[in-house]
């Protein structure tokens, strides 16, 4: 029952977003962006709902959702860590930072989200802070002039915050 209720509420939210934007296809990308901001990913049943509500074929909605790197069809972690691998960061050795973060968060093989759902680790091609390379972002906040050690310390701090939420401010 509880599950059904949430689903209903979810659709109501999505309908509100669509209502705000209107149903023209040029609104599809902004609508998907808002939906993703709310759920941290694009749940499949919501994509079908959007298709019906906007009168756009499911293949088109799905096609757009899978084309752009910003959209994710899988749930993301609470902390989305992006390691910049743009040219400026790359030549200042961003990859060892990426590897250190993956190791620290226990990611192996093709996994990008940690088993506890806390961390998603991905690369991004330039966040525009190239003057301070190498950089990483955590939920859109930029951390400059990184080293593998500094990145590990930041993740330690986040892990601690999760264990002892009261201690943080």
């Amino acid at each position: 029952m509880a599950l059904l209720e949430t689903t209903h509420r979810d659709f109501a939210n999505v309908s509100k977003i669509i209502g705000r934007h209107g149903k023209g296809q040029q609104e599809l990308v902004p609508i998907l962006q808002e939906v993703q901001a709310e759920y941290r990913y694009l749940p499949e049943e919501i994509l079908s709902h959007i298709s019906t509500a906007m009168g756009i074929p499911p293949a088109t909605v799905y096609g757009v959702a899978t084309f752009y790197a910003q959209f994710s069809l899988e749930p993301k972690g609470k902390y989305v860590i992006r390691v910049c691998d743009g040219t400026a960061c790359h030549v200042r050795h961003s990859m060892p930072i990426y590897e250190a973060i993956r190791k620290k968060t226990g990611l192996r093989g093709k996994r990008i989200t940690s088993a506890d759902g806390l961390f998603t680790v991905e690369t991004v091609a330039c966040v525009g802070a190239c003057g301070l390379a190498p950089v990483i972002t955590i939920n859109d906040e930029v951390y400059a002039q990184m080293t593998p050690e500094a990145a590990e310390m930041i993740i330690d701090a986040l892990m601690n915050r999760e264990v002892n939420p009261v201690e943080t401010h």
């Binding site: 023209g24 296809q25 040029q26 609104e27 599809l28 990308v29 902004p30 998907l32 962006q33 088109t60 096609g63 757009v64 084309f67 752009y68 790197a69 910003q70 959209f71 091609a125």
Partner: peptide, 25 residues
């Protein structure tokens, strides 16, 4: 103001216009 959604090819002008129209870029 239109926000992109993360695709390098959308910098190419015809792809960018497709993206504004709500299509795959």
């Amino acid at each position: 103001i239109k926000e992109g959604a993360g695709a390098f090819v959308c910098g190419e002008e015809t792809a960018l216009l497709a993206s504004i129209e709500g299509k795959r870029g």
